[in-house]
Amino acid sequence: MLWNSLAALALVAPSHALIRFGCSQLVVDRLDPLVNPGLTPSPHLHQIIGGNSFTPSMTPVEHDLAKLSNCTTCQPSEDFSNYWTASLYFRARNGTFKRVPQRGNAGFEGQKGGMTVYYMQNQLADYAQKAKVKAFQPGFRMLIGNPTANTRQEAEKYQQLTYTCLQNPGTRFPETKAFPTKPCPAGIMVNLRFPTCWDGKNLDSPDHISHMSYPASGVFESQGPCPDSHPVRMPQVMYEVIFETQVFNDTSLWPEDGSQPFVWSFGDGTGYGNHGDYVFGWKDDALQKIMDEECYVNCTSMKTQSMEKMNSCSVPNKVHEDIGDNDWIASIPGQPMMRLHAADGSI
């Protein structure tokens, strides 16, 4: 398998850490403690992974995820962070909806929903991982993307939020900013890469974005320098979220005008509103130790747990509503209107 060969290559030369791991589903619920703290229900549906101390309101001062959680859906047993993304829906020709399930990546078969998470210092295929980075601190949180974006120009503000139409489990390119416009044989993978330059002062900001920045020039992969306003280099957090769209690939179910049928749970049918949220919750200095280790994927300082334990960790729903997992529903929860169109014509 590809990732086994990458891990083997890591033994050739000294390196610093790049880790890649699976996280199972913790809950699918209409909650967002970062953007809408305490609001139950929040405006749109998310799938959440990570530590089971997740609640509708998690203030940085009072809510220590590592101390309050007693299980995590992530492979690293010391990672009680919470990670979440919006849910995806299929809109049938008759106007009804069904939620698209998520599945584990190649190498994480058996995982219950969820996603794949990366922490890296250099680009993905750089076995050396030479850059030194400072791990996130307790209370740190951020988001990337804008759910109200509905044009390519707005989406371009966030350099590395993309989609991959999977031809097979190993497909990684091309990447697009809008939803794929044709059926994808192995599903749709949503790619979210967070900014990597921190202002060194604020664990959060009012918009949950401004305390972080992209490099002043170039990109993370090209090792662009951090701007003076955000001088501290952090690991790049990356999500790969795979939606099992194959069951909806019968084009007789698709809109008669040939437009693509997938809609985010916040009503966006363009794909430009792609976004993700992150709340740090690693135990003590576990993440920093891993980042300082010379390792690639298989890191001895990363304590892990079994798939069975990952899958067994969950929290009960706070919002009880039909989200379209079994039967077709007339509308997406919380969404009276939708922003359809796209492809490269936006709306």
Rank of each mutant, 00 (worst) to 15 (best):
M1Y: 15
S5F: 12
A7Q: 08
A7P: 06
A8D: 15
A10I: 00
L11Y: 10
L11A: 08
P14M: 03
A17Y: 07
L18C: 06
R20F: 12
F21V: 01
Q25Y: 13
V27L: 10
D29I: 02
G38Q: 10
L39N: 06
S53G: 07
P60M: 02
P60I: 01
L65E: 08
L65N: 03
L68K: 11
S69C: 07
S69Y: 14
N70H: 14
T72I: 02
T73D: 10
C74F: 08
D79T: 00
F80A: 00
S81K: 06
N82R: 10
W84C: 04
A86S: 14
S87G: 09
S87T: 03
S87Q: 08
F90I: 00
F90P: 06
A92Y: 15
R93D: 15
T96G: 02
T96S: 13
F97S: 03
V100N: 05
Q102L: 15
N105S: 14
G113P: 11
M115W: 12
Q121S: 13
Q123F: 13
A125L: 13
Y127M: 12
A135I: 01
R141A: 14
M142E: 09
I144G: 09
I144T: 14
A149Q: 06
A149E: 10
Q153A: 15
E156K: 11
E156F: 07
K157M: 09
T162Q: 13
N168L: 05
A178M: 09
F179P: 10
F179E: 06
K182H: 10
P185I: 03
A186H: 15
I188W: 13
R193G: 12
R193A: 14
F194Y: 13
W198E: 07
S205A: 13
M212V: 00
S217N: 05
G218T: 01
C226D: 05
C226T: 01
P227T: 00
D228H: 02
H230R: 03
V232N: 01
M234G: 04
Q236E: 14
Q236F: 05
E240Q: 11
V241I: 11
T245G: 05
V247E: 15
L253T: 11
S259R: 11
T270Y: 12
T270A: 04
Y272V: 01
D277C: 08
Y278K: 02
Y278N: 09
V279K: 10
W282S: 03
K283M: 07
D285M: 02
A286D: 13
I290Y: 08
M291G: 02
D292I: 02
E293A: 04
S301C: 00
K303R: 08
E308A: 07
N311L: 09
P316N: 09
K318Q: 14
K318D: 15
V319T: 07
H320N: 14
E321Q: 06
E321T: 02
D322A: 02
D322H: 05
N326W: 06
D327V: 01
W328T: 00
A330S: 12
A330D: 13
R339T: 14
A342W: 12
A342N: 09
G345Y: 12
S346Y: 10
